[in-house]
Design a protein around this nucleic acid. Structure first.
Lengths: 343, 343
DNA sequence: GCTTGCGCTGCAATCGTTTGCATCACTCTG
DNA sequence: CAGAGTGATGCAAACGATTGCAGCGCAAGC
């Protein structure tokens, strides 16, 4: 079990190490006589040889690892994506190196340098910001990159995100059908594509449904957190502009709204309907269960990884922008307006 | 920005590449004259040189990566541990390679082979089973291993877990104080140290508190899932043996109980108190918020990583068994018994 | 003044694979 | 039967860093 090398196998099979290398590599296996291949395979099996990927990497300058850059592993939205990525990478013999940036550009930069220093063959990035050209620059220098979850504006990068726009329409339509006319939108940070797409979807759906289109009803959250959601929601409640439902950019933001409701003794959905976005794990267990737009998290991961794997093969390739379909998941947190009036 | 080597730096600084190597390595830096070090540092900075870890690994046969083996990244219990691990590994210049086994021994074996083939310097394992000698064998062959979350029986392996025993005592005491006499214990799979420790804690605390010690009141769950918890809990309810509170081996199992309660129109804690274990993220947001034993997830990760880093340094070392303190977190899911009687 | 010793640096082998090129034994063709 | 072609394998140079060893210059010691 000590570490064997090609030479050990070569000796056992009575051939040269170069021949063993060729026999073991599927791409060059047919350049070795079948008889020799058989002898080598036997020797490999008997000795229990496994190739040393580090030596291979040194020679080929491919590490067979990819960096996975996400905001925060403890945000339940991301583990499913990571597992999706993992499942594809496994098939290709690649391994992920996962880093959490906490949405801090500095941490992100540090981690990315570290990943590149580790010679990752590519990056799967879930932290792109709209103003930021970091990834375009990296791509220009030859780093293979696939964006997931968020896109970067107009950059020629592969990306796979949810169809936020459509999802928002479905949600707004649902609320409109329930009878809501004035919806508070707790938008995400405007420097992310996700926030922008969802906000755009909000605006266009509000208009399409003929609901009140009031600038007061749109508030930007500085971060995708429950705390931020709670703060902005509380402000909006105090602001005096009436609304009967709130559309949160993200389930976490919606959870912040729940907190405020509880603090103030308000009841959801009687006093206020609340909807989230993402359908992250466990939001079906909140009280009440959260109405939200289900985003195919696992598939986003898979698709992003697929794209990167595809890109690694080719020299030049057309960047693709993939939108994955979403579905409206209606649960208990949305209902007909009126609780307010009935009091 | 193309890939520079030691030789490029050496040329720029007018020295030999070996000297550059020595100047860059903190351990050998003092063998190079200060003046030369300065020149080399300057050249490194100007050229933007970064060492190639792959070449380094090949030569030193240390990959500066560690395998992190956990059951499932989408179980909210584990991301905090992983982040704890990450934080320590960062300090040491190590990177984690994370794999999810879904508690399937076959997947585990596959992943571990892959990790070893990738030449990880050590393993942080959260999937140990009591009967299993896999990790002892690996350790005997020289693989450095630290167990977290679960231990392996009597094996001379480093391990860090929560003080399950004490946690269970705290919890039982809490329930006893509320007036409960008959507690259903939904234990975890008996082939895990965690399940065994918590069960042992349950038994001894029940006796210490003078509660009913009835074999009927202990049921083993085959897996740590909500579905399994729901199934066993439903059976127990139907079984006729009375109890007023349920102690679940894990928060997920407790969530399964919530499901059954909801299905049957029972109310927690009025009809039944329910307690979990772990205090995983978001259980404070369940309805009702879950009473549970808070396990220091992040710290378990940190401590496990510390141990492994320490072990990598030494030749032989005394394995340590660390128990991290836990705290009882009382929330809304436990209350005085009586709901049943009052009906 | 010559040796000894020491501090600094160069030299070159090495880690384990991959891969272009050379070589060799054949077979086939005309 | 000579020459070309072909298929299989050996050879050896990389890949980029580390490191034991050797060599060099120089100061100190006698």
């Amino acid at each position: 079990m000590a570490n064997l090398t090609l030479r050990d196998v070569a000796r056992a099979a009575g051939v040269h190490s170069g021949t063993v290398s060729r026999a073991l590599n599927p791409a060059t296996r047919d350049r070795v006589s079948p008889e020799t291949v058989r002898r080598i395979d036997k020797a490999v099996r008997e000795l229990g040889y496994t190739p040393n990927p580090i030596a291979r990497s040194l020679r080929t300058s491919k590490s067979h690892t990819v960096g996975v850059v996400i905001p925060d592993l403890t945000n339940p939205l991301f583990p499913p994506m990571v597992r999706g990525i993992e499942s594809v990478l496994d098939e290709y013999g690649y391994s992920p190196l996962i880093v959490s940036t906490d949405d801090d550009p500095e941490r992100e930069a540090t981690h990315i340098s570290a990943l590149l220093a580790r010679q990752v063959d590519g990056l799967i990035v879930g932290t792109a910001r709209l103003g930021d050209t970091t990834f375009d620059e990296l791509a220009a220098r030859g780093t293979r990159i696939a964006l997931i979850n968020r896109r970067a504006a107009d950059s020629g990068l592969d990306s796979v995100t949810a169809d936020d726009d459509t999802g928002m329409s479905l949600l707004i339509h649902h609320l409109a059908t329930l009878g809501h006319r004035r919806l508070l939108c707790l938008a995400g940070p405007r420097n992310t594509s996700t926030a922008v797409a969802r906000l755009r979807g909000f605006h266009s759906a509000v208009r399409a449904e003929g609901l009140d289109d009031d600038a007061q009803l749109v508030v930007e959250c500085a971060s995708w957190t429950a705390a931020e959601g709670a703060a902005r929601f509380a402000e909006a409640l105090d602001g005096g502009t009436p609304f009967t439902a709130v559309v949160a950019a993200t389930d976490l933001v919606a959870m912040g709204c729940y907190d405020v409701m509880a603090e103030r003794g308000l009841s959801c959905p009687d006093d206020m309907s609340i909807a989230g976005f993402n359908d992250m794990p466990f939001v079906n267990r909140l009280a009440p269960p959260l109405t939200t737009v289900a985003v195919p998290q696992y598939e986003i991961g898979r698709e992003g990884a697929q794209m990167l794997m595809a890109a690694l093969g080719q020299q030049e390739h057309m960047p693709r922008t993939v939108l994955l379909p979403v579905t409206l998941t209606v649960r208990g947190s949305t209902g007909a307006p009126g609780g307010h009036r009935e009091r």
